[in-house]
Design a protein around this nucleic acid. Structure first.
Lengths: 163, 163
DNA sequence: ATCATAATTGTATATATATTCATAAATACG
DNA sequence: CGTATTTATGAATATATATACAATTATGAT
């Protein structure tokens, strides 16, 4: 009796779940159950709840509505690749100090974010410097924090709640 | 009346939510509601459900039990950093072909995974080559796929459902 | 200002998900 | 082999989350 006689059924189901989630958008455990049924796996929502927890599968709010289950290894990529893939989606926070704004983003994305900001040619920004996960924004002399925020938010509404 | 008179309350709440989730483990919307209450934000579970969707905050099954809400920018790191941070956690799948096993993992992790595998000095493996997200494993002549799987799974049970 | 339109929110409720409990199957151990 | 112990599962249910609806408030255009 080798190791494969144990938990054959559950592991196969787990494999199938991974496969399904990698290739299609599943938005409820019942939907997953039906999909598995098509593949010959008869099971219940309760078991799937446990399976998803065991596999540490995450539930992500969809772009406009609904939810999607995904492997955690897919999350960042699905978030940045799926729909609006602006580098701004990688932006985490913006803090102001005197004539500088410090924008924190995901590792390795700072150059893209800086390039994007440069492309906007905003009057209030006289230049940017990108590291790995940080963009330093140099603000034009005479521009107040409030003015900067206002301009930034009006051009980039998606940053509204990060500044 | 400037732009900041609009949606002050909601944006402030969103900011607060981000801040809370970045620094603490919240496992239900009610828990989040209580935390916000402490900060002076009175709201309801329904609103938080909508907020979490708007902010595209994900729900991750915890290591042993329960669930955690997290910013999507935290997911990969929280997954690999939080508990057992073996490079194997970045491993997505293993496929076999003749004397080769192709292990797919998260981008940039292949070298760590390969190093880890080398360290195991498994008889059935005569060598590995790491790309960026793929490790090529060369299997010793005469070892069957079943034997390889059996050895791999017995040494690395966490890969059980990826091969 | 005044009206029309759009956004935000709470209440109540529907829906989805997790968990308890009982049971069966698998494994470990004698 | 037989018994003890763990693991997996389903049914029923508790809990958590999403949403329809109505009311309120904000925004935009005269």
């Amino acid at each position: 009796m080798n190791i494969y006689t144990i938990m054959i059924s559950r592991d196969n189901r787990h494999r199938a779940i991974r496969g399904i989630l990698e290739t299609s958008k599943i938005s409820s455990q019942n939907e997953l159950r039906e999909r598995l049924e098509d593949l010959g796996f008869e099971t219940t929502q309760a078991t799937l709840s446990r399976d998803l927890a065991a596999l540490r599968i995450v539930r992500i709010p969809g772009a406009d509505k609904g939810y999607v289950y995904a492997l955690s290894s897919q999350v960042t990529s699905s978030f940045s690749l799926m729909e609006d893939n602006s580098p701004l989606n990688t932006c985490k926070s913006i803090a102001l100090s005197h004539n500088l704004a410090v924008l924190k983003c995901l590792p390795s994305f700072a150059p893209s974010v800086a390039l994007f900001l440069d492309g906007l040619e905003m009057d209030v920004i006289i230049g940017t410097v990108a590291g790995d996960d940080t963009v330093l924004i140099i603000i034009r002399e005479g521009v107040t924090h409030e003015q900067f925020r206002e301009v930034l938010v009006s051009r980039l509404p998606e940053l509204r709640d990060r500044i």
